[in-house]
Amino acid sequence: MTAEKSDRLTREELEALYAEHSDELRAFLRGVLRDADLAAEALQMTFVKLIEQGETANRTTFKGWLFKVALNEARGIRRRSRREEKLLRQPVWQTGNETLSLEETLIRQESVEQLRDLIQKLPPEQQTILKLRLRDEITFATIAEQLELPLGTVLTRMRAALKTLTLQLRERES
């Protein structure tokens, strides 16, 4: 009993884990749940589990443990919400606004500005697909029909755009 108590995470450790992983976990949960409020609920439950059962996790693989718990919590919430199918078909950018602090809002704005610059440097045909999918919310299949292109071509262009943007963002960060 005394040994169990000594293995439990201290308040400082919990705060450090939250500061290190909460943003990434929230983004992950939003991707899984496609709902900002449900994602916040799942994140809270994940950290409650960490407080309750954190001592059972291997401290060198806390991150993996947290993601696994978060996924289980998310799937449970989604099942209980009785709109599992609808949530799975919904794109992540239609999930409502999350509450951000002033600092988070400024960081987000900066990232968006960077992305805007990078998008303008993409080949025009890739920009078109990107805007039709994300701005006009047209599915890839409908874009292919409208532009009279094979679906494979549309997907390839989108994938190329995404790869270019991801690499350029990584370069800027590093």
Binding site: A27, W93, S111, L115
Partner: peptide, 29 residues
């Protein structure tokens, strides 16, 4: 996702990327 941290990180990264891309193309264009 249940067993692959890299896949989880990819979901987190693409979720954030999609949100920001949406903001970038919606606000300006």
């Amino acid at each position: 996702l249940a067993d692959d941290l890299a896949a989880c990180e990819a979901v987190a990264a693409m979720s954030e990327m999609a949100l920001q891309l949406n903001d970038a193309v919606t606000v300006e264009q």
